[in-house]
């Protein structure tokens, strides 16, 4: 794995390397170089399989993190390519030309995070949220708990206790 990362480094810039375990590492790269590095990994380094494309919302830093998890079936190793993009008008170059199924991931990310992938086929088509009008639900500023409370009802028979209130009831009911 170290060799591969060294070889990427001769051509590109990597800002962080995390070795999760022997057969899984993550590299952080710039938005501008990302697709080029992924292409290099696919065509030269044998990472022929895209395991997944996912995102995380780092609202504190005003960034989205995209992770392209790639698999090299011959070497049986995984490499995750992390890219941080601005949260505002979030947009990323499409990678559907490398793997056709990326379009589906990108469609999902558009719907769940509001990250745009211009020219990705069908990126604006609704994915699983029917008639969603709120802000994209995977964004951290979406109040999931409030949504749960407004949308769903508690299962009959469910009861909870506030620890402080319960302790008052048990330990000093008359005070």
């Amino acid at each position: 794995m170290k060799d591969i990362i060294d070889r990427i480094k001769t051509k590109y810039t990597i800002s962080e390397v995390v070795e999760q375990r022997k057969n899984l590492s993550f590299v952080t790269v710039s938005k501008e170089q990302a697709i080029s590095i992924i292409t290099f990994l696919r065509d030269i380094e044998g990472f022929k399989h895209l395991v997944l494309l996912t995102a995380a919302d780092w609202i504190e830093n005003d960034k989205f993190q995209l992770t392209y998890l790639l698999n090299n079936p011959t070497e049986k190793i995984d490499l995750g390519v992390r890219v941080f993009i601005s949260r505002e008008n979030a947009s990323m170059e499409s990678a559907h030309h490398l793997w056709e199924q990326v379009a589906t991931y990108q469609r999902e990310l558009k719907e769940m995070f509001g990250i745009d992938f211009p020219d990705s086929p069908g990126v604006d088509k609704p994915f699983i949220l029917e008639g969603w009008e709120d802000i994209p639900p995977y964004r951290r500023d979406f109040d999931t708990k409030q949504y749960s409370e407004d949308t769903y009802f508690p299962r009959p028979g469910r009861e909870s206790n506030d620890p402080a209130e319960y302790m008052k009831k048990k330990l000093y009911p008359n005070e």
Binding site: K145, P154, N161, D162, A164, Y166, L171
Partner: peptide
């Protein structure tokens, strides 16, 4: 913290409510 409201705090037999422990 549970965003799905999946957790309830319930009394458990044999666990006493005392200083520092709600008993739930």
């Amino acid at each position: 913290i549970c965003q799905n409201a999946a957790i309830d705090m319930v009394p458990v037999e044999g666990i006493e409510t005392k200083d520092g422990d709600s008993g739930l």
